[in-house]
Design a protein around this nucleic acid. Structure first.
Length: 435
DNA sequence: TCTGGGGTCCTAGGACCC
DNA sequence: TCTGGGGTCCTAGGACCC
């Protein structure tokens, strides 16, 4: 790792809300919120909504009134749309920003190793302008010696009118001042729990954390915050992760529209989740050895009986064959399910993933395995081309009472765009995370 | 009435072995 | 009453991120 090179982080402002504004310009002059699945919580806010004091990731119903009073556009999330814009933004960064290396960190953020150019602020300004010109998505750019400091620079660039979206702290005399003005909980990697513990030992600002004894930090927190302290001091501890890394787990989980206690209904949901997760797994060319099924009762409101059920089935070999993995899931489901509870949420997690070339040959079953493997692939293909679950196994009941509803769906046409562009996303598939 | 979903990494502690 | 110590592997849960 080049210890001198500067790291920029480019972060899209209010990404989901910004995407919605690009495709619907009438939203430009209105406050905008984007809601999660089932319209449960707010996952993206325009600046106007932030100014109203509505926090991110908070339940929509708690803020409905104030949002309506301010004529806020309320929109159900449309992931296909955000994927599409994510690719567009990443393409600009790839082609047009003097990058040595790019790490796509999330759907709306990328770290860029920009080497050691003469005029970093000018480069930052160029990146911001280029992305906006070509995608209409506003971004902020933070530049520094380490990822943690770059994140801080970005944070300030977003809120400071003087910075106007670009801040360079690479060799800046203002770095310590910026750290003094920043609450320790705003530092990347320091969450609410750690911030409380640090407060107990008299550390409140990022600057106090920077100048703390690493040993003292290790005594109170764990390894990661200790690394954060060194990063605040300009020592690179977190490198660029440029190479594609395959997922360590793939999951599909949902909160039900209402409480469900019937086994068959839970079973339908679980097999539906499994099917979605397996599609994603095969799309990423992976096979699985461990599957987990879980279900639990309502976390937020009192129920007669609480229950958190979970079971992991560990196979002795890997597979990517739907019919086979269904039998593992069925066993986990039987183990995790207890009758008599009001379930509110359930899910499936695939872990212990590996690419199929590494699957050891199963001599005695080889023929049958190959045959079923091809069948799974064919079903994926048909569903991809003609729509979800056009072809499916008898175990899968696609629709059920358990499904919730999104009330604020807008134009659905972008769902097709998402499908068409799935392939182009491959090179960025490494650490895709979703809000 | 209405409280998300998809990830990663780290650690403490139990089980087991010699 | 006495009742090792060191190593490894596994797992559940915590913390964090977007």
């Amino acid at each position: 790792m080049d210890t001198d090179s500067a790291i920029a982080i480019v972060d899209c402002n209010n990404f989901y809300a910004s995407c919605e504004r690009v495709v619907n310009p009438e939203l430009q002059n209105r406050p905008v919120v984007v809601l999660s699945h089932n319209d449960g919580i707010i996952v993206s806010r325009s600046n106007e909504v932030k100014a109203l004091g509505v926090p991110n990731a908070s339940p929509f119903f708690q803020h409905r009134e104030i949002l309506e009073r301010h004529n806020t556009a309320v929109i159900s999330c449309n992931h296909a749309l955000y994927y599409e814009f994510s690719h567009r933004v990443m393409d600009v960064l790839n082609d047009d920003c003097g990058a040595n290396k790019i790490e796509m960190y999330s759907i709306d953020e990328a770290f860029i190793d920009v080497g050691v150019p003469d005029k970093l602020p000018m480069l930052g300004r160029h990146i911001k302008n280029a992305v906006f010109e070509k995608t209409q998505i506003p971004v902020s750019v933070g530049i520094a010696r380490t990822k943690t400091l770059a994140k801080l620079a970005n944070h300030i660039a977003k809120v400071s009118t003087k910075a106007d979206g670009v801040l360079d702290l690479y060799d800046s005399p203002y770095t310590d001042l910026a750290l003094q003005k920043t609450h320790v909980g705003s530092i990347w990697g320091i969450g609410p729990r750690s911030a409380l513990k640090l407060r107990d030992v008299g550390i409140n600002t990022a600057y106090e954390l920077k100048t703390a004894e690493p040993k003292q930090i290790r005594e109170h927190l764990n390894l990661f915050p200790a690394r954060t302290v060194r990063e605040l001091n300009g020592v690179k501890c977190l490198g660029m992760e440029v190479t594609e890394r395959s997922n360590k787990s793939i999951s599909h989980t949902r909160t039900f529209g209402h409480a469900v206690s019937d086994f068959d209904e839970i079973r339908n949901a679980i097999f539906y989740f499994t099917t979605r997760a397996l599609e994603k797994m095969r799309w990423n060319n992976l096979a699985v050895k461990s599957v987990t099924v879980f279900m639990h009762t309502d976390r937020f409101r009192p129920v007669p009986h609480k229950y958190y059920g979970k079971h992991t089935y560990k196979s002795v070999y890997y597979s990517d064959v739907t019919s086979e993995i269904y039998t593992w899931i069925a066993e986990s489901l039987e183990n995790a399910f207890r009758p008599g509870f009001q379930y509110r949420k359930a899910g499936v997690i695939l872990s212990d993933l590996v690419s199929p070339d590494e699957i050891s040959t199963r001599l005695f079953e080889q023929f049958d395995f190959e045959r079923r493997h091809s069948l799974s692939k064919i079903i994926d293909e048909v569903n991809y081309r003609y729509g979800r679950d056009m072809v499916r196994f008898a175990a899968l009941e696609a629709r059920g009472d358990w499904q919730g509803k999104s009330q604020h769906r807008g134009n659905d046409s972008y769902h097709m765009v998402g499908r068409d562009t799935l392939g182009q996303g491959k090179k960025f598939s490494k650490s895709m995370r979703f809000l």
